[in-house]
Design a protein around this nucleic acid. Structure first.
Lengths: 121, 121
DNA sequence: TTAACATGTGAACATGTGTTCATATGTTCA
DNA sequence: TGAACATATGAACACATGTTCACATGTTAA
């Protein structure tokens, strides 16, 4: 959890272009919105979750098959699926004992592609 | 740093659809590529860096003005700018004592917009 | 019901990460 | 040159995060 910075005392810092700072300050989106955006990207910032998402591009899969695919424990996958679920990136469908997960968002593939473009450059 | 999972012993895990697992396994991109992709998104997963990037959408800015804008210490901003620089998301131009940072990538704005679309839904 | 199974979850642990502090580097101007 | 300034950086610290382990929950089939 990141804490607010209201109580800090950084008033006396040097400024080069005070006018610009004030102008940009007014244009900045709400603190909370930017925080949520960072939280959203944080979900993509783990290679296990990236692999899970990539796998779900190919096919809807159940927890134990994802665990097998990635050679990781069922528990670890389940924990990560919860993170993805909380960010509304995946949805699930129960079928008896097994639970099938699928992608829940059309933006995801585009975001991946743009990320790929960057790291390939 | 994440460690490899070659030495783990998860061979005896249950599988529901072995064929599917094998098929997807062959289609998966290289481990390293997915790792790099996660590392890339990790950079976006911090609200300070998100704010810095957002500020640089508006204008090129020097370190101390960014620090003022975000009401954070110059050191903290400088550290984060290094992270952004290492990911080739920003570039800098020296002008005497001051160093001006600017965005280095056309994908960034698109990625932000897609992220916004998701969290706004 | 009971056994076997698939998944979910809380606690603990190790590791990763962001900020602060003190200080170094490098520039400008007197 | 020396003082003031803008930025960079290493170490330390607190906090966040991912995985493991043990176990709970809920389902199926005998």
């Amino acid at each position: 959890m990141e804490i607010g910075n209201e109580s800090r005392n950084l008033q006396n810092q040097p400024v080069v272009d005070k006018e610009l700072v004030e102008e940009v300050k007014h244009k900045m989106p709400d603190e909370e919105l930017l925080y949520d955006l960072a939280e959203f990207f944080k979900v993509f910032g783990d290679s296990t979750r990236i692999k899970i998402i990539w796998a779900l591009f190919e096919a809807d899969m159940c927890v134990c098959d994802i665990a097998n695919l990635l050679n990781m424990s069922q528990s670890a996958i389940s924990h990560q699926l919860r993170v993805l679920k909380n960010s509304r990136l995946v949805r699930y469908k129960k079928s008896g004992k097994t639970v099938y997960y699928s992608l829940n968002d059309d933006h995801i593939k585009k975001i991946f592609e743009l990320g790929m473009e960057h790291i390939m450059e």
